[in-house]
Design a protein around this nucleic acid. Structure first.
Lengths: 411, 411
DNA sequence: AGACGTTAAATCTCGGCGTGAAGTAAGCAG
DNA sequence: CTGCTTACTTCACGCCGAGATTTAACGTCT
């Protein structure tokens, strides 16, 4: 309990720049006038700071609006092409690299299949080549990229040094990665700033920025796929915990000592309601089908009234509801968003039962303050959320360019 | 996702004052010299700010230390008698009001028994009279009290207005309080600033400031008493959630659909390992004994090898370990502290088994970064933790006196 | 005793910040 | 063209922290 307050000199400027930039980013084109009233800064300061941002090329003027009788307002917006972002999704079956502009519109994308072998070295090489591909395809020079956000499976241990991304270590049980120095390996292929986080967490970020989580400051994004994970947002910021592995919801117990789970423990939620577990437990599964096909078949069977399928899905809804109730009790969020490909598939059928079960299992007061909704983002959101990581840094720093961008920005 | 960002002018000074005050508070008497290097502020600024704080009477000089050959260092410390704090514990059986000085040394205390009736109006009157008693006993004028911290059972809904304490609403299931406008009722008896929170949370605060949680920024304080609760600290700050009811660990499920719990749900942790549940479930309990006596008897029987007692405690350790594993997975803390009167009683016997079970049930990586320890604070810590609430506000604001104190501080 | 070295603290100068008032730009109505 | 309204810019002011300089308060050495 000896928290930090640091010294501050012209961090005021950084803070002002950050505030204005953020506001412009999220609330579309605005005049300096509106910016001032919205952020609380005086008109003089807004003029000053926007002038600086304009000179840096980070924002630009875009049209004007008549104001009855007086001088028209000049609208400002973030210059979308001034810098770029890369988002990468390392999934179970492929590595996807996507290049975005500052407004997060997709410019180019490169997919590379990832078969049985998940050798880290090979994945890193695929990232490097994917990076070259998208930059070449869009004609964007590498110096113009603010940073690379990467969503990986497993637990991510963030670095702390001067180049934190390069110190990132990944523990991925499903990939057989044990303390892989992922950041260091990547750093050998690119000098760009690296931001690595768990894929479920980047998906959660996307959900908070552009999906069903928009507008809430306390939320839990529950990712329901082959496994089960969660991304907790507290007060607008992702909850990381001491070593940024917080939110491992899938291995929360629903029946202590129950079904064995692939994590080595027993009774985990994932061992009951993960897509892998559901397909494996259903007696109607045709051996050899893929997980997605198997789950779709299970859903169809349940909709046709096949008793074992109905029972299995009813049980899944009950357990998910109970476990979501735990999240409500522990995190007290305003909103719970159910996402992930299995969540998208089963959600429409299960949501009412899940909500009802959550009401039965959670404490009344926090439950009454929470809404449970389905995600409205596609599965491509992982790369989008990953790109969000360097973007957040960019906005927080008030539009600071990494060192290698200085020359470009000066033009 | 449109977070804050405010205007800032001489908040720098507030921040500097806060930093220095906090550092002096927690790291005992220090010279200006040491303060400078410890906080990163320049010697000039330290001189400036400490001069201001001295003039305000918030800190004082206390002796000096030779520095080989040169001018001796003058030590500074927070002036303990300059202001006072009140901490109140509304427990199941009594209302305890304690007056502290700024250094949180107890000056006076008043207990009032709370029998069957928990009528809110009566509790508020007891608080008012207890307040008068302790102030009179210590000869402290009310104007000299920075604020009143109150730990209550149940869920606390914090106010948001200009006088947040007075808007506090309490939902206390065990007391039969339903949306009691506790803050407003108190405001009729005293003009002092009010800070209300759940008793488990104030106990957790005490643990973080003075107990086993000291020095960690991410911790979970698990309170194990008649019921079960938790206080989550993330990055040095208590995790509140949207309506500050986060951390309701006791009603987390260990067996979905299992034993009925007093909260109305089934399978809650509390329904298995709460002291009330343990005493009720043990076949050796003598009807009519108090909960504490019953639990002590259970413990003695287990130590004598009585099989049903041993089995019950073994199961409790297993379930606690599994549920603590959930906390580890979800919150990823550096430390878990087990407190509460039942925790203190059973802890020494159960701790090894709990730790071992947690290892079996939690993910390996976050578990390896967590230590599980027993509380080292007595049960009186609730009032201490409650007094911590106004103190935190005082330190955060850089030593700002509430309005009614202005006259006193000017002397 | 007095000069000197050493270290702590106070004071001073400097560049930078946001505010708010005063000034300027850019449109409209008559 | 003259006023009038509104948007933006400029500027003087007070305040801030950093860093250099000065003063204070001690030992020690001759």
């Amino acid at each position: 309990m000896t928290p930090r307050g640091k010294q501050t000199v012209r961090d005021l400027r950084r803070s002002s720049r950050s505030t204005l930039l953020r506001h412009l980013y999220f609330h579309g084109p605005l005049s300096r006038q509106e910016l001032g009233t919205a952020t609380g800064l005086s008109a003089g300061s807004v003029s000053n700071v926007t002038g600086e941002l304009l000179a840096d090329g980070l924002i630009e003027e875009c049209g004007s609006v008549d104001s009855d009788g007086g001088r028209p307002r000049i609208l400002l917006r973030v210059a979308p092409g001034q810098a770029h972002l890369v988002g990468i999704d390392i999934g179970e079956t492929q590595v996807r690299v996507t290049l975005f502009d500052l407004a997060l519109t997709e410019l180019a994308s490169a997919d590379q299949p990832l078969l049985a072998a998940h050798d880290p070295e090979r994945v890193v090489r695929m990232i490097a080549s994917g990076l070259d591909q998208v930059l070449a395809a869009a004609g964007v020079p590498a110096e113009n990229v603010l940073g690379i956000g990467i969503g990986v499976p497993g637990i991510v241990e963030q670095g702390t040094g001067a180049d934190p991304g390069a110190d990132t270590v990944v523990h991925g049980q499903t990939f057989g990665w044990d303390a892989v120095p992922f950041g260091r390996m990547l750093r050998e292929h690119t000098p760009l700033p690296l931001y690595v986080d768990n894929g479920a967490k980047t998906l959660g970020q996307a959900e908070m920025w552009f999906g069903a989580g928009r507008g809430s400051r306390h939320a839990v994004v529950a990712l329901f796929g082959s496994g089960v994970g969660a991304c907790v947002i507290a007060d607008g910021v992702r909850f990381r915990g001491a070593t940024s592995s917080a939110g491992e919801w899938g291995h929360t117990k629903v029946h202590v000592g129950g079904r064995p789970c692939r994590c080595g423990s027993r009774g985990c939620l994932e061992a009951y309601v993960g897509a892998e577990a559901l397909v494996e437990r259903w007696d109607g599964t045709v051996p050899g089908t893929s997980e997605k096909a198997g789950l779709a078949a299970l859903l169809r069977a349940a909709e046709d009234g096949q008793p074992s399928a109905v029972a299995l899905l009813d049980e899944a809804a009950e357990l998910l509801g109970a476990s979501i109730a735990d999240l409500v009790n522990l995190f007290n969020p305003e909103r719970i968003v159910i996402g992930g490909w299995a969540g998208l598939l089963l959600g429409p059928r299960l949501l009412p039962a899940i909500g009802e079960a959550a009401t039965r299992y959670a404490l009344a007061y926090p439950r009454s303050r929470t809404t449970i909704t389905l995600s409205d983002l596609g599965p491509d959101a992982v790369t989008l959320g990953a790109a969000t990581l360097p973007l957040t840094h960019f906005l927080d720093s008030g539009g600071e360019m990494p060192d290698h961008l200085a020359a470009v920005a000066a033009v």
